[in-house]
Amino acid sequence: MKIFVCLKQVPDTETRIQIKADKSGIEENGVKWVMNPYDEFAVEEALKLKEAKGAGSVTVISVGPKARVTEALRTAMAMGADDGIVIDSNEPLDTFWTAKALAGAIQKEGAFDMIFAGKLAIDDNAASVPQILAEALGLPHVTVVTKLTAGGTLVAEREIEGGAREIFEVQGPCVIAANKGLNTPRYASLPGIMKAKKKPLKEMALADTGVQASQLKTRLKDFQLPPEKPAVKMIAGDAATQAKELVRLIMDEAKVL
């Protein structure tokens, strides 16, 4: 069974975000990069599936500046992925061309059975690349997946409003976008980390995937820090007084109800 997992590297949540002087993006110096948390569920599910089948391979793939994103790929290989592909790109791509780059690279690798990704990346919260990737490859997709059963037919449970679930049956190769709850990602072991350093990592140029970076569909600009929030208004008194005053403030001052 040949499985791909798409990874994105994102700034760690604790990282302080600073904006470039020309407002064209964020200052990347000093940013600590980590694997997108939802992608960890994707890697884990791929590894579990391969182990259950008893044969096959898990290839992790990412688009971005080679030196940086290789770290995320090595982390996934330390968890157990067999090899990696890095599509080297220093230009920021939109979701459309990111998906096209992944699709182009995956197609070059020949036949495969399944593609995993995280349901969204926590940096841009777009939740778009898995679906666009599936469209580019002409495959079905299921996103926000919290349970996967791979018997003869693949059964994927997707979480919708209020914890309700839609249960899909999927034939043939597909794209699955993982949600929290799908599994508990394993930690990379020390021997795993040592082994990962020697696992094959293939490099591809963005142009080789068929991407026209000059044809971006969308572009981010005019980055701004959010407006400063006014200081919190603390409400004093006993519980009854506090409750009464809070209701007054919400109804009469904030007027949000």
Binding site: Q215, T218, R219, P226
Partner: peptide
């Protein structure tokens, strides 16, 4: 849209869409 968990915002400009 907000980015990086609301730590900043940016305009999304449509280019070749």
């Amino acid at each position: 849209k907000p980015l990086y968990s609301g730590k900043c915002t940016a305009e999304v400009e449509f280019v070749n869409s």
